[in-house]
Simulated assay, not measured.
Amino acid sequence: MDHPESLAEHRGGTHPPALTTPPATVPAPRPGHREGRGARAAWRAVRPSERLCHGTGAVLTLSGLAHLVVFAVDGGPWDGPVSWRKPVTFGLSFGLTLIALTWVTSYLRVGARLRTALLVVFAADCVVEVGGITLQAWRRVPSHLNMETAFDTAVSMTLAVGGGVLVVLLTVFAVASFRNRPAGPTGMPLAVRSGFAILLVALLSGAAMIARGVVLTRTGHQEAAYHSTAPLKPLHGVSLHAVLVLPALAGLLSRTSWSGRTRLRIMYAAVGCWSAAVLGAAAWAVLTW
C-alpha cells in the first residue's frame, strides 16, 4: 500500500520545486553596430565594377590633393602650360567625375553589361589622362599640344585620343538619359538629363581647345597653341561638373519633407542658374576668342 504522503505527491498535492533555467543574457548591441553592419551589407551589394570605379576615383582624387601639397612645397606658377595646377585640377576633376558618374548612371535605363563595360573603359581612360598629365608635370614639360620630342608627341597624342574616347563614352550616357526617362526621386530625371546636356558643352569646348591647339602646333605656332585654350577654359570648367552637382542636389532634396512640387521648383531654379553660368562663359569665350 502506498504511503498517504506519497499518494498526495503523486496526485499533485505536493510537488518538489521545478528547476528553471535562467534566460540567456543577450548583449546589447554596441552603438553604431547595426549601422556599421548595414553599411557593410550595402557595400557588398555594390557591383564589382562600381567598386573598381569608386576606388579608382578615390585614388585620382587623392593624387590631385597630394599634388596640391607638392605645389605648396615646391612653388612655381599656377598658370601656364608647365604648372602643378594641371595634376591638381585634373586629378580632382577626373576623380570626382568618375565617382559621380558611377552613381549617376545607376539611374539610367541601360543594360547592366553595357553600363559596366562603359564604366570600366571610362575608369581606365581617366587613369591614362591623369597619369600622362602627372608624368609630364614631373618632367617639367607641357602635357598637351607638346610635339617637341618623339616621347612628348606620343604622350600628347595619347591624351588627345583619350579625350576622344571620353567624348564617345559620355555621349553614349547622355543619349541614354534622353532616350529613356531616368529613374529616381522627384527632380532626379531633370537633374540627370540637364547634367549630361551641360556635360556635352564641356566635351565640345574641350574638343575645340584641342583642335585649335593642334592646328597652331602643326603650322609652327607652338607658343600660341599653349595660350590658345585660355578663352574656352572657363566654359569647359563651368559645364564639366553639372552632372555631379545637380543630381547630388536632387538626392539631398529627396531626403527633406518638402513636397514634390517644391523640390521640382528648386531643381528647375538650379538648372536655370547653371545654364545661365554656362551661357555667360560661352559669351566670354566668343568675345575673347
Rank of each mutant, 00 (worst) to 15 (best):
E5D: 15
L7A: 04
H10Y: 11
R11W: 13
T14L: 15
T21A: 15
T21H: 07
A24N: 10
P29L: 13
H33G: 13
E35W: 08
E35L: 15
R37K: 14
A41Q: 15
A42T: 12
W43M: 14
P48N: 06
C53Q: 05
G55N: 01
G55A: 14
G57A: 08
H67V: 00
P77V: 05
P77T: 06
W78M: 05
D79F: 01
V82D: 00
W84D: 04
G91V: 08
G91R: 05
G91M: 06
L92N: 01
F94I: 08
F94N: 06
I99K: 07
A100I: 09
W103Q: 09
V110A: 11
G111P: 09
L114A: 14
D125H: 05
V128N: 01
V128M: 13
A137F: 07
R140L: 11
S143F: 00
S143C: 06
S143T: 05
L145Y: 10
M147C: 07
M147S: 13
T149E: 08
T149M: 07
F151K: 08
S156E: 12
V161Y: 08
G162L: 00
L166K: 13
V172H: 00
V172F: 04
A174W: 02
V175H: 02
F178T: 01
N180Y: 02
A183N: 05
A183Y: 05
G184S: 13
M188L: 06
L190Y: 00
A191I: 00
V192L: 04
R193G: 09
S194I: 05
G195V: 05
F196T: 07
L200P: 05
L203F: 04
G206H: 04
G206T: 11
R212E: 14
A224T: 11
Y226K: 02
S228W: 15
A230N: 14
K233I: 12
P234W: 12
P234A: 08
S239I: 03
S239P: 01
L246E: 04
L252Q: 01
G260K: 06
G260Q: 04
R263T: 01
R263V: 09
L264A: 13
A269G: 12
A270H: 00
A276W: 06
A277S: 11
G280T: 00
A283K: 04
L287C: 00
W289N: 12
